[in-house]
Amino acid sequence: MTAIDSDDLRNEALFVSDLQRSQHPTPEVIRAVVTETVDRLGEGGCAALVAQEFGEHPDCALGRMRWAQQAVRSAYEAA
């Protein structure tokens, strides 16, 4: 497991994960998904996919990033 200290990286990892807001994930699930995504893609991979999504789907990407930021903040405050 990777120790992730950057909220920016956490936000990006959650953003590019398959986890959906409609799944109403718990803080534990969010933290696990963030760790798994960073372990799988690395910091550069997460950033590249965020850029790709903002380029291809700017209308949806902003809302998803806002959700990711709020979810990460809540999940890591609870830790």
Results as ranks from 00 to 15, higher is better:
residue 7 D to M: 08
residue 35 T to R: 13
residue 65 M to T: 10
residue 1 M to N: 05
residue 29 V to N: 09
residue 23 Q to I: 07
residue 20 Q to H: 14
residue 30 I to M: 10
residue 37 T to L: 11
residue 19 L to T: 03
residue 18 D to P: 02
residue 52 Q to V: 01
residue 30 I to E: 10
residue 62 L to D: 12
residue 69 Q to T: 12
residue 6 S to G: 01
residue 60 C to W: 15
residue 76 Y to H: 04
residue 70 Q to H: 12
residue 32 A to G: 14
residue 75 A to D: 02
residue 61 A to F: 08
residue 37 T to K: 07
residue 12 E to I: 00
residue 62 L to G: 11
residue 38 V to N: 09
residue 78 A to W: 09
residue 34 V to Y: 09
residue 31 R to N: 11
residue 32 A to M: 14
residue 59 D to N: 13
residue 48 A to R: 07
residue 61 A to V: 01
residue 4 I to R: 00
residue 58 P to Q: 01
residue 13 A to L: 06
residue 17 S to H: 03
residue 6 S to V: 03
residue 22 S to A: 15
residue 35 T to F: 10
residue 5 D to V: 12
residue 49 L to Q: 04
residue 34 V to E: 07
residue 33 V to Y: 09
residue 47 A to I: 02
residue 23 Q to F: 09
residue 35 T to V: 15
residue 32 A to S: 15
residue 55 G to Y: 00
residue 11 N to K: 07
residue 45 G to H: 02
residue 46 C to D: 04
residue 73 R to T: 13
residue 11 N to H: 14
residue 76 Y to G: 01
residue 64 R to V: 08
residue 51 A to F: 05
residue 46 C to Q: 02
residue 26 T to C: 10
residue 16 V to Q: 04
residue 32 A to Y: 01
residue 54 F to L: 06
residue 66 R to D: 12
residue 22 S to T: 14
residue 26 T to G: 11
residue 62 L to Y: 13
residue 71 A to S: 11
residue 41 L to Q: 03
residue 25 P to W: 06
residue 27 P to T: 08
residue 47 A to P: 04
residue 55 G to D: 05
residue 51 A to C: 03
residue 64 R to S: 08
residue 71 A to G: 05
residue 68 A to E: 04
residue 25 P to F: 07
residue 24 H to K: 14
residue 23 Q to W: 10
residue 79 A to W: 11
residue 2 T to Y: 08
residue 7 D to K: 12
residue 69 Q to A: 13
residue 58 P to G: 02
residue 71 A to I: 05
residue 41 L to M: 10
residue 69 Q to K: 09
residue 72 V to W: 01
residue 16 V to W: 05
residue 29 V to F: 07
residue 50 V to R: 00
residue 27 P to D: 06
residue 77 E to M: 11
residue 15 F to Y: 05
residue 13 A to W: 05
residue 8 D to E: 13
residue 58 P to C: 00
residue 33 V to A: 09
residue 70 Q to K: 12
residue 49 L to T: 01
residue 74 S to F: 14
residue 70 Q to Y: 09
residue 12 E to R: 08
residue 74 S to R: 14
residue 62 L to W: 15
residue 46 C to H: 03
residue 33 V to E: 13
residue 6 S to L: 01
residue 2 T to C: 07
residue 23 Q to D: 15
residue 52 Q to E: 12
residue 50 V to Y: 03
residue 79 A to H: 11
residue 44 G to I: 05
residue 58 P to V: 00
residue 62 L to H: 10
residue 17 S to A: 08
residue 27 P to Y: 04
residue 13 A to P: 04
residue 22 S to E: 14
residue 77 E to D: 10
residue 62 L to P: 01
residue 77 E to K: 12
residue 79 A to E: 13
residue 2 T to W: 04
residue 24 H to V: 11
residue 79 A to T: 11
residue 35 T to N: 13
residue 22 S to F: 06
residue 37 T to G: 11
residue 39 D to N: 15
